[in-house]
Simulated assay, not measured.
Amino acid sequence: MSSPRISVILPCYNEESYIANAIESVLNQSFTDFELIIVNDGSADNTLSIINGFEDSRIRVIDQENLGPGASRNNAMRIARGEYMMFLDGDDWYREDALEIAYREITQKDCDLTFYQMINYDDETGDIYENDWFNLTTLDELDGKVFGPEETPGSIFDLSVGVCQKIYKSSFLRKINAEFPEGIFFEDMPFFYYVYLKAKRISIIKEHLYFRRKHDASITHVVDGKFLDTVPAGQVLMRIFIENEWYEMYKFDLLAYKINGPRFALRYIEEKYKIALYELIKKDYTEIKSSQYYSDFLENLGPVKKKFFLDIIASRNYQDFIKLNS
């Protein structure tokens, strides 16, 4: 059996309301030389039976216990046969010519990865709307060009980290041993920065090829217990930058980015999770204080982030922190 040009990886967990639409958006593509690897991540609803209702030789199904999005994508990547890889979330969908346009761009320019635009869909109102983040406005000046990460040194933390917004050369991902952190949410973020900074040839497509559904259960719509993982995701990110000797070049923006994720999460997370998140942040910052990087945080953080950092360290508990940081 010859290898397909593209492997589309679709992890899903309890997506019975949306999974059929996601699958159909792949099967109905104008580009037909693909395999669709669907990972049922221990769904407790009718997701698996809906998946099994599709009869198409291009579909491959992994049915596993609930391991989370990182492990789901890693398991699919290990068996993917395509020359290129794309990712789709179970509640989203592709434009009908997405694969065709993405494949043409990445092959003609021989890129390691190519970005394309995403557009938002509000599930409640039916409204479709754009934003600068998913429109890749940070990269506007590079439209039509092939570039490397060294050409975007001051803006990498303004880029969309979403794994579904890119097509990747499979041989490149395997060469750099790219994989997602497992057991945490926000796994896209460390994966993206590792892959982006390892890439030599990158391009962008200024067309909306991907529809991103916003609904009540969306991970970024509800600031719930998943946001506890902003702390371990930030720790993984720091480790990646240090191990790959990118830390010194990017530390000013990296340290601000690392502080801001948990800082905003602590502000907006549901009340019942605030103490648990505070304690995770406190443990992380206490370890930083005894590390060689402590002075870098003191010297590079702006006043608001620095006060947050020091107030967490100085506080005895969450209530004490609230008084200090008011």
Results as ranks from 00 to 15, higher is better:
residue 100 E to V: 00
residue 250 Y to L: 13
residue 281 I to V: 15
residue 203 S to K: 00
residue 172 F to A: 04
residue 311 D to I: 10
residue 219 I to H: 08
residue 217 A to R: 06
residue 265 A to I: 06
residue 305 K to C: 02
residue 278 Y to Q: 04
residue 326 S to I: 12
residue 127 D to T: 03
residue 50 I to G: 09
residue 160 S to W: 01
residue 287 E to P: 03
residue 306 K to F: 07
residue 236 V to G: 00
residue 294 Y to N: 10
residue 219 I to Q: 00
residue 280 L to H: 02
residue 177 N to S: 14
residue 258 K to F: 09
residue 39 V to D: 02
residue 37 I to T: 05
residue 301 L to N: 01
residue 86 M to G: 02
residue 153 P to S: 00
residue 13 Y to L: 13
residue 119 I to L: 07
residue 140 D to I: 04
residue 209 L to A: 07
residue 234 G to W: 00
residue 271 E to S: 11
residue 157 F to V: 10
residue 285 Y to L: 14
residue 161 V to C: 01
residue 162 G to C: 15
residue 41 D to N: 15
residue 222 V to S: 06
residue 305 K to Q: 15
residue 251 K to G: 11
residue 87 F to N: 02
residue 127 D to F: 07
residue 129 Y to H: 13
residue 287 E to K: 14
residue 147 F to C: 10
residue 237 L to P: 04
residue 157 F to I: 11
residue 144 G to K: 10
residue 7 S to W: 06
residue 256 A to F: 12
residue 55 E to H: 03
residue 305 K to P: 05
residue 273 Y to E: 06
residue 175 K to L: 13
residue 155 S to C: 01
residue 44 A to C: 10
residue 100 E to G: 02
residue 229 D to M: 05
residue 80 A to M: 13
residue 125 T to K: 08
residue 61 V to Y: 09
residue 272 K to V: 12
residue 273 Y to V: 04
residue 309 F to N: 09
residue 272 K to N: 13
residue 164 C to A: 09
residue 224 D to M: 05
residue 197 L to H: 10
residue 133 W to L: 13
residue 145 K to D: 11
residue 52 N to K: 15
residue 298 L to G: 01
residue 173 L to C: 06
residue 114 T to F: 02
residue 91 D to T: 09
residue 312 I to L: 03
residue 62 I to D: 12
residue 275 I to F: 04
